[in-house]
């Protein structure tokens, strides 16, 4: 249990660090959201689950927190992405396609 907990914590923090790196490297807000959301969601879930393995008395709260992060994180990043698009933040110059702009132009 303790070994598994340590492994989960390590993998989780590795993904958190990769998410931070993605935030720096990606060219526009939408790609940063992609890197930020995915990596931190799995990273945080893994760290929390690993911590619960080390201290089993907090398992119930840890499960609740994992469920909350899994539900809330995509919602908040979708909201940020939607607001950014409506707020006029352009896609990165290397983007290849934008169906949404086409849609609004024809309306």
């Amino acid at each position: 249990m303790v070994i598994l907990g340590n492994i989960l914590i390590f993998i989780g923090s590795l993904f958190l660090a990769l998410g931070g790196l993605g935030l720096i490297r990606m060219p526009d807000v939408y790609n940063r959201l992609q890197a930020g959301t995915k990596a931190t969601t799995l990273g945080a879930m893994s760290v929390i689950l690993g911590s619960a393995f080390l201290a089993p008395e907090m398992l119930t709260k840890a499960v609740l927190l994992i469920v909350f992060i899994a539900m809330a994180n995509p919602v908040s990043s979708s909201t940020i992405g939607r607001s950014a698009y409506k707020g006029g933040v352009p896609l990165a110059s290397r983007s290849v396609r934008d169906d949404w702009a086409k849609e609004e132009a024809t309306e």
Binding site: L18, L21, D28, A35, A39
Partner: peptide, 20 residues
């Protein structure tokens, strides 16, 4: 996560973004 990790760690940043 593995996919995004691979993209972030590749020096040339292999992305081809767009909205569909």
């Amino acid at each position: 996560n593995l996919d995004i990790a691979r993209r972030v760690l590749t020096p040339s940043l292999p992305i081809n973004p767009g909205i569909v």
